[in-house]
Write a protein that binds this DNA or RNA. Sequence first.
DNA 1: CGAATTATTGAGGTACGTCAACAACTGTGG
DNA 2: CCACAGTTGTTGACGTACCTCAATAATTCG
Lengths: 247, 247
Amino acid sequence: MTPSLATASAAPRQPSLAVFNALPAPSASRAASAGPFAPWADEASAYSRDQVIFSEGDTASSVRIITSGMVRILRMMADGRRQIVGFLQPGDMLGLAMGGTYLYSAEAVTPVTLRRLSRTQFDTLLERDPELRLRLLAATATELQVAQEQMLLLGRKTAPERLASFLLRQARRVTPEPEDHCRISLPMTRTDIADFLGLTMETVSRAFTKLKTTHLVRLLPDQMVELVDVEALIDLSEGGGQSGLIQ
Amino acid sequence: MTPSLATASAAPRQPSLAVFNALPAPSASRAASAGPFAPWADEASAYSRDQVIFSEGDTASSVRIITSGMVRILRMMADGRRQIVGFLQPGDMLGLAMGGTYLYSAEAVTPVTLRRLSRTQFDTLLERDPELRLRLLAATATELQVAQEQMLLLGRKTAPERLASFLLRQARRVTPEPEDHCRISLPMTRTDIADFLGLTMETVSRAFTKLKTTHLVRLLPDQMVELVDVEALIDLSEGGGQSGLIQ
DNA sequence: CGAATTATTGAGGTACGTCAACAACTGTGG
DNA sequence: CCACAGTTGTTGACGTACCTCAATAATTCG
């Protein structure tokens, strides 16, 4: 295999926005700070639900990897309008690739633990390990694809199409090709989903109702959702919603 | 200076979406295929207005650098809905960082010339030059920031806010801090702008009228636009549109 | 200069937003 | 285990920003 970026993009779909799986997660490595591949801090930082991890404008002093829980990264406008640009999960990296200050905020959606790496350590690592640069480049390039997909969603899709796309996206983070009746967990609130999809909470709720009444999904207890008909969801997410059934 | 990505993001703003300025452009280098830094093909490919450079689904066989003209890259839905994810200009790279096939199409907005580099040559280059990996990583990371900015625009901004953001973005590709009465050229059509901003042509036109009547811009012949009041445009683009003037 | 394309403007429709009431959770203490 | 308060989610009624369709005006280009 060549180092081609093709490798990266052909890899697992939708690794997650603004995130990088390229550095080895500490969970896998044995001796925490011994080998060259275990640079992460031993101690995990813990955050509770809705706690701010960092804010837009803070000086970016370290890179973080999520070891448990879910994080949202978001941009805000002065008047409070909020756009969530990604939901991050265990294994995802956070806080990389920005200037001296963060350009977005990160908050815990659920209780979160993460490990840190100082920016200087990270830079040293990058300097020493050209292979790492390649893996990060591949991961970032894949992120960019995901971001473009999200632009299509935000610019051109209807509310039900956005929700279907979102559910599939979440499902594919677990299984690349989700099956009928597969179940996914949505630990974020309707408001979070709305701010990710460029909608309001109410519209998200109505879109859920629509998917329920057309038997594409079922809402289960404990923030679980069952994708009843994956193919229909895919059709819907790609705009095949009403075609053939007009009149 | 360390190789930190901080360097990259602090650099010139808005280099352009899905694009990379990290490889040396052939225009600068002397001996076209002699030195290690002139890997681009000698002969330029030329495309006329609206000509397709490659399409979603084509096998990605080469990387390209634009030497003149403007390119749009876009994603389409089955029913024809179109989202432009970026406008590319001379110096921008194109066709990098995707799987075996392109995930978006590229078309000439104006007559375009570009030079190519086969994927295998590019891979070789990447393999040999770890420094290049770093520059590409930095460029891609910056692209990701721009993409997140665009998500905020598409998810949360009003039509006039989107247009103001777009005009500023284009201006900043020439001058990081544009001055009052600066002029920018908009070679793309209203439809292109609409498909970039997630609007319709008519709404873009009405937003232009609004900016004209409030004396934020002036439309000049030859697709030129004068940014009359940059600060007001910035305010508007950030959502400061109506505040303080209510009632 | 004239045909074709592109942009503007108007009138009316609609998907989504807003505001508000209510219902269903979630978690805690009795 | 249940009561209950606080939160989160759903549903309804209504408003509005943007879309659609259509006519006209301004460009562009042969």
